[in-house]
């Protein structure tokens, strides 16, 4: 799984521009299932198992990552941008970016020497930042970049013990788990969506869940872990190395309590998500049509939505195991 996560994180695919990620995933899964791409770009999967499932289950992982979109090019050849998805300005300043998967640039601004005392203590407005690609004028820049192009903050993959450090762990970890499930799980039939535009407000999952029309859904995600220095135990939300986080409620969803209890009481190492924060594709899926029983299995990530997110490989493995446990229960008809 590590190699798969590594490869997936280093493919650039901001919300609305997931083509390269989808292309890679299709290549991985095409021999194992039926698939099609819907009008928004969701990759919809039907995986035939050895047995017909008692209940129709949809799995979901989103392909998109947070990033930047180029909005204008200045006369000096600098690029102005908007953020796509929620990004803390502090994590953007003076970072290397990659535009269209190939052009290097740096998010630039005033050096510390030229800041007033107040400026030095506060973050600038994101819209005062700009990307420098080395072009000396607008014409030069336009040879390389167009308004509307996508960019990501560079963040290579590193493994340090059980920990992994990379950009886009949210949600390429989910994609990796789902790819592995499609390849390896064949007891019962199931369907799945590799969804687009999650970071823009759960947009892809809305149409995907309508198309697939499931009775149950399992969302494979990454979620904030604040198990860092100076944060009290009650505020960490979840901790790396203690298994995937299982949500009972977040800002977008009240999760099906039977599914929650089943997961939390399973033999697989997992932990409750100890906060009502954030949201994921469950928010769109659980309200699809007449309503869908939904559970999210989230791998804890420190510094989520940055180019240096950190997760624990053991949590990824346990998320995979827990997904199989839940699939067995749901697909065999054991759940109410």
């Amino acid at each position: 799984m590590t190699e798969l996560i590594k490869t997936l994180t280093q493919i650039d695919g901001i919300s609305g521009d997931e083509n390269k990620v989808r292309g890679f995933i299709i290549n991985e899964i095409k021999d194992y299932c039926e698939y099609k791409t819907d009008p928004l770009g969701n990759l919809l999967i039907f995986k035939k198992g050895k047995n017909k499932a008692s209940k129709k289950l949809m799995l979901d992982a989103h392909m998109d990552e947070v990033g930047l979109i180029i909005t204008s090019i200045t006369s000096e050849g600098f690029l102005k941008f908007n953020t796509v998805g929620g990004i803390d300005t502090a994590t953007l300043m003076f970072k290397k970016v990659r535009i269209n998967g190939e052009i290097s640039g740096v998010i630039s601004g005033k050096p510390i020497h030229l800041l007033s005392k107040d400026e030095a203590k506060t973050l600038p407005k994101t819209n005062s930042l700009y990307i420098d690609i080395g072009a000396e004028c607008k014409d030069e820049a336009e040879k390389l970049v167009s308004v509307g192009d996508s960019a990501v903050v560079c963040g290579g993959f590193e493994q340090i013990g059980d920990k992994i450090l990379s950009k886009a762990l949210d949600d390429r970890i989910g994609c990796a788990i789902l790819i592995k499930l499609i390849k390896e799980y064949d007891t019962y039939d199931f369907c799945a969506s590799f969804s687009v535009q999650e970071e823009l407000g759960l947009r892809g999952a809305k149409t995907a869940s309508f198309s697939l029309d499931p009775e149950y859904a399992l969302v494979l995600e990454g979620t904030t872990a604040a198990d860092i220095s100076d944060v009290s135990d009650s505020e960490t939300v979840c901790n790396l190395g203690e298994g995937p986080a299982i949500s009972f409620m977040d800002k977008a969803t009240v999760y099906n309590r039977d599914l929650y209890n089943l997961a939390i009481n399973s033999e697989v190492l997992c932990q409750p998500k100890r906060a009502v924060t954030g949201g994921n594709n469950s928010g769109a899926i659980h309200l699809s049509r007449e309503g869908i029983k939904t559970l999210a299995i989230s791998v804890p990530c420190r510094y989520i939505h940055t180019n240096s997110s950190v997760a624990d490989l053991r949590d990824c493995e346990n998320a995979y195991k827990l997904a199989i446990f839940m699939m067995e229960k749901i697909l065999s008809g054991e759940t109410k």
């Binding site: 803390d88 994590t91 450090l165």
Partner: peptide, 16 residues
């Protein structure tokens, strides 16, 4: 890697 403030603990205007 330097810690970034988790979203649920950030209080708008942060001083550095």
């Amino acid at each position: 890697v330097f810690c970034s403030t988790p979203p649920h603990l950030s209080s708008g205007e942060q001083k550095y």
